[in-house]
Design a protein around this nucleic acid. Structure first.
Lengths: 153, 153
DNA sequence: TATTGTTATACTCTATAACTATA
DNA sequence: TATAGTTATAGAGTATAACAATA
């Protein structure tokens, strides 16, 4: 058993916690919050989507999506449009404000990321990057196997 | 501007998200949840504490602590005891069950951490560790300066 | 019948403000 | 006066279940 693993885990959680708090604080006055930003981000990546698709991808209930889309719509970031072929469904699309906002977020994320690693030299960066990739992959294996074990028949 | 920073940031957030979901899922049936575990963890580290101290350390309201301690007490993890010298205050202490639980958590965390870095060699581990330390320190600087700017006089 | 989205309801975590008991 | 804890109230995010419209 490698004791460095536990310290690395601690550090990861600490870092994530600080980043999340910083992000949450930055939403003040925008009509956004973590949950809405996750949805906004998904719309940016996947483009116009039905609420069912959003619910599945985010792993939350359709009822929850209804509320989140309401929130984005109320603040002008997204809007509901009729689905062209399925009259049961709605397509959630980014408005102009939504598109501008995600562009700003992409830039902000890039800048924040680059500031985060200021002071690391190229070699350190490379090692950090590959190390995190390895951890992410390992984590995916671990949680997947645990999930499958517990959700067995 | 270094584009690797953004990818590292993405990876960090992904990893943290997976770990959090895995942890949250593991609490099923224990009467615990993220908020209560944070408090349990703090009691483990700091020992018996007043609710005011817990509120300050966790950065939440005293009313919130009341509810969380209620939850831990209801499930047998902690109990309220009178403060020996200040009759306004209560000391929240871990019960035997609480102590056992945090011991199990410490071991589980160590094991999970070591599994997480299985497959990395000593050199990779060292680089990952120091890289994360550097990022955590940088992050602390960044959020501190941003907070001070925004919360000016 | 099955699916899409909404509504009704409930639970948890959180905050602020008013209150009691004590310092 | 000030502090420790509780209660009342409110708001957000989440879930499940029942429902209407459509496929």
């Amino acid at each position: 058993m490698n004791s460095q693993g536990a310290e690395i885990l601690d550090r990861l959680m600490l870092i994530a916690d600080l980043i999340n708090k910083d992000m949450a604080a930055s939403f003040a006055g925008t009509g956004l919050n973590m949950a809405r930003v996750h949805l906004l981000w998904l719309l940016h990546h996947d483009g116009a989507s039905t609420q069912q698709a959003l619910a599945r991808t985010l792993g939350v209930s359709p009822a929850n999506i209804t509320g989140l889309v309401d929130g984005l719509e109320r603040n002008g970031y997204a809007e509901r449009r009729p689905h062209p072929t399925d009259r049961r469904a709605t397509l959630v699309t980014l408005t102009e404000r939504g598109t501008e906002t995600t562009s700003v977020m992409v830039r902000g994320r890039a800048e924040f990321g680059s500031r985060l690693v200021e002071g690391l030299d190229a070699e350190q960066l490379r090692w950090l990057h590959t190390g995190l990739d390895a951890v992410a992959e390992r984590l995916d294996e671990l949680t997947r196997s645990r999930r499958d074990t517990q959700e067995g028949p």
